[in-house]
């Protein structure tokens, strides 16, 4: 069954030839994303300086820092969305996901992005029905079996805690939902392709407190199955949802540690100045 193949057996990220696989680790929180000595440029302007970090599996990692500090840029490097920008380029360093260098020339970004999903700052459902929004990721993979699609819609909408609210109007436009619902629809859409990693770029910045609470609750639930990286301006949010927090300033990673540690007793002075609200 081609459907089963598509669903269950992940295609290798590297198509032509196998990159040496990472040594199998069985510890629950092994490192999934490794960023080492990463430098990144927009044209002549350097946006990231020598970033080193490792992101653990099934944890929520929050990126915080003032505007323009490079946190979104780094996030978008993890699924190579920056490839869409003409002037963006990498200076040096690597990012590897599950042991595979994603900037290796043999890596197919299409396959990468199926494993590293993304939710954007502004909710951006397609101008299609709720149903079509969710199954979009399957449709582009050529899956047309109604049963598979139906099952995915229910599973993902439940996964995004939206099912109860929309199950009777799956045919209405995704744009007819409220802001918070639209954002959860986008999360459901990202879940449909069964990623391992979910990148969230300020997912709550356009939402009211009630909708924000719902999305945060959802992040808590998703943590059990997905590795989540979230960029946020809201330090309380970082404190509430994340296990690890990374603080960026002017393109540099200043400090990364367990969230409690960062908020209670940061090592660096800059971090403390930022989280206590003295600048930023």
């Amino acid at each position: 069954m081609s459907v089963m193949t598509n669903e269950n057996i992940p295609k290798p990220l590297v198509e032509k030839e196998n990159v040496p696989p990472s040594e199998p680790e069985t510890t629950p929180n092994r490192s999934l994303i490794e960023i080492s000595n990463f430098n990144f440029f927009y044209g002549d302007k350097q946006a990231l300086f020598n970033v080193d970090m490792s992101i653990k599996e099934r944890e929520v990692t929050a990126f915080i820092g003032p505007s323009g500090c490079g946190k979104s840029t780094l996030l978008r490097c993890i699924n190579r969305m920056n490839d869409l920008i003409d002037i963006a380029r990498i200076g040096s360093g690597t990012i590897s996901v599950n042991g595979v260098d994603i900037y290796d020339e043999r890596v197919d970004t299409i396959e990468l992005r199926k494993r590293v999903g993304m939710v954007f700052q502004k909710s951006n459902p397609f101008p299609k029905s709720i149903y079509e929004n969710v199954v979009y990721g399957l449709r582009i993979q050529g899956i047309t079996r109604k049963s598979v699609l139906d099952e995915t819609v229910e599973r993902c909408l439940k996964g995004a805690a939206l099912w109860e609210e929309v199950k009777d109007r799956l045919d209405t436009s995704g744009l007819s939902l409220s802001g918070g619902q639209q954002q959860r629809l986008c999360i459901a859409r990202a879940l449909a392709v069964e990623p391992d990693i979910l990148l969230m770029d300020e997912p709550c910045s356009a939402l009211d407190p009630v909708a924000t609470a719902k999305v945060e609750e959802l992040i808590h639930e998703l943590k059990n199955r997905y590795t989540i990286v979230i960029v946020t301006h809201n330090m309380q949010q970082a404190a509430r949802v994340s296990d690890k927090t990374a603080f960026f300033y002017l393109g540099e990673l200043i400090e990364m540690n367990a969230t409690d540690q960062i908020f209670m007793s940061p090592d660096k002075e800059q971090t403390e100045a930022y989280i206590s609200g003295r600048f930023g």
Binding site: M81, I110, R113, M118, I140
Partner: peptide
């Protein structure tokens, strides 16, 4: 954002 969303899903 439509283009980004679509590309981010591996299309």
């Amino acid at each position: 954002s439509y283009k980004e969303a679509s590309m981010a899903m591996g299309s």
